[in-house]
Design a protein around this nucleic acid. Sequence first.
DNA 1: AGCATTACGCTACCTAGTAGCGTTTTTGAT
DNA 2: ATCAAAAACGCTACTAGGTAGCGTAATGCT
Lengths: 380, 380
Amino acid sequence: MTAGLDQSAIRRLNTSVALRALAVSAEPMTMTVLADQVGLSRRTIELILAALVEAGWVEELERVPVTGGAGRPPRRFRLRAKHALLAAVRVNTLEGAAVVSDVRGNILGRARRALREYHDPQSTLDDAADLVREALVDAGGTADRLRAGAIASGGAIDDDGVVRRLVFTEHWEGVDLPAELGRRIRIPWFADNDANLGALAEHWRGAASDHDDVVWAQLGSRAGLGILIRGSVHRGFEGAAGEIVEAASMLAGSLDDHPIAGLTSPVHEQRRFARARMDAARAEDLAALAEVDEFVEHIVSILTTLSWTIAPSLIVLSGGLEDAADVLLPRVRDRMRAARNPDIELRATSLGSDGPLIGALKFALDRMDTQLFGPVVHDA
Amino acid sequence: MTAGLDQSAIRRLNTSVALRALAVSAEPMTMTVLADQVGLSRRTIELILAALVEAGWVEELERVPVTGGAGRPPRRFRLRAKHALLAAVRVNTLEGAAVVSDVRGNILGRARRALREYHDPQSTLDDAADLVREALVDAGGTADRLRAGAIASGGAIDDDGVVRRLVFTEHWEGVDLPAELGRRIRIPWFADNDANLGALAEHWRGAASDHDDVVWAQLGSRAGLGILIRGSVHRGFEGAAGEIVEAASMLAGSLDDHPIAGLTSPVHEQRRFARARMDAARAEDLAALAEVDEFVEHIVSILTTLSWTIAPSLIVLSGGLEDAADVLLPRVRDRMRAARNPDIELRATSLGSDGPLIGALKFALDRMDTQLFGPVVHDA
DNA sequence: AGCATTACGCTACCTAGTAGCGTTTTTGAT
DNA sequence: ATCAAAAACGCTACTAGGTAGCGTAATGCT
């Protein structure tokens, strides 16, 4: 049962809306423009801005005459992006990477390093925390500015950030990522699957900014699907949503009598494809092209399943295939159309391998400002 | 970009919250109880109730001494459920059915009839409108009380209620169901796939009331999946979400090299299963049990695909299988567990064949009170 | 310098919450 | 019958947060 609201909810909400508008605009904004954009009176915006300046979230710039126009120059306000810093960290089987950004999501510092022992969650999380500290130094920031962080990890991660399944290892099962990281670096932490965060990133500032139901498909060396429904990550029961590819490899062998979209080991596919792609590019050689076609079929079978279950309006292909997009995408599109699948848009990632890290930043950012400014209103 | 809110939004929202609380409770409510439940002050509730009584949505009952307690007897308020009526209509290939309900969803009147010619959308929609009028008469209501309606139809229906795909016929493609019905009966109409509405019904007042990510699977004579994500219907691109079963039969033949979860014609399966079930029930005969197992495998293959793509927390099985649930469900559960799928809850429908109609009522109800009282706030 | 233009700073006012006081209506004990 | 306790009512006073719009300030143009 939803609860009623008092007026302070309105102010929190309107503050949040104003702040988001400021965050989106690269240029400083005037009160009048901001008021127009968020649909509130100038007076209200004036008061909200005063509070935000007071709190340090926004700074007022010196006035500058409007070029070409008459009239009193407006006051100009700009988000103080560095008022708060966000951390994102990602761990793979082999290495970890961290970034620190301002609240706009501008990446200010980075760190990257091979992990000591992935199968030991504790040492890996220690490494992750070190990476965050390193990235923070690289960003020239201090620990007290860090406001929130998120970790992108493989495997099925539930709504609370607990790892429920992870292929190739069982040591991570049950690890509470936010709690573990929170013990090492004392800020609120959030966790999600790297593919989900890849999708979120693409929606925030990538190829999917104009779609709300998105699947982000990483079909390279690490396979995984990320799902966005109505603009929010869909994790599914115990984080299993979109784990179809990993499920297939996990179940391989016992699976012959249960074909799931005809999947085979992604690692194997990847190797084969890498070779085939190079060959084809080099010589337009028929055998190599056949291998590309085989890989295309593999992709198409997954996308077909997606088309008739989740039916996103956009599928973003990722996973080190970006450079081969010109070869792959048209073929995949042709095959999808030939199979009479819904005419779902297909694009290559525009963020590359940074996707999950950027998504983690957005994830932390969303949670942070919901905490600070209250929930968002959706029209049903 | 979300817009800011003024105070009147709060009142609309709080009114809606109060009204929903009244709708949920079967008993009349007192101001104090209502205030407690929605988290607003008694005074605010008092004012909201006054407005609702004024508008006819709520009636005040005579006071009755509280049994067993001291103190002044409270004022008692009850939703005037019949202040507005809702219509729901459903069309199959062969017949149509309509119900008229009050805003609580109590069904007050019904009508049901064979359709003249399903392949002609216009005559079918005429029939649908007639059914609604008939059900209205049966309910003892008048046309001016009807406030909104919804239609449940097969096929892929997009967010605007336009039919995008329908197996076995092309005449329905592009038909704008809300517009067509609105021309015949002048209230706001909404449309959705019958399986989606089945899922919604189950969530509202059926087997899925305690889950928010639900798949409703009708695997009987008409096949179809309905999907609820975060409690709302997920339609997908051009309504294709969950059409995997129909897709398979549509593509059958050209599909051999693109196995989608090993599907075969649902009608065929259904016939086979009906026979098998009866045999098995009659004689525990081995051949019949083998056929049941075959059907179980068919279901399991679909559910497996669902488990790793959408990964709902609950799957509701429907489609005339209710009476066989005791035979089927344990077997399906065993096979799902054996295949190491996520341990997703499986239940039989509790609404039977009325599901889609009841879901259509809920759908109309939700749209109607969003229109009247504004959007709902979600915590992110 | 004077005027048009644009934005500012502010007062007055409205809506919709909350707090809580004094009153009313009841039950149960004396 | 009377009175205290209990429970809810009806209301006034107050606060928060919004809008309207007036008089003022700062600028460019002629």
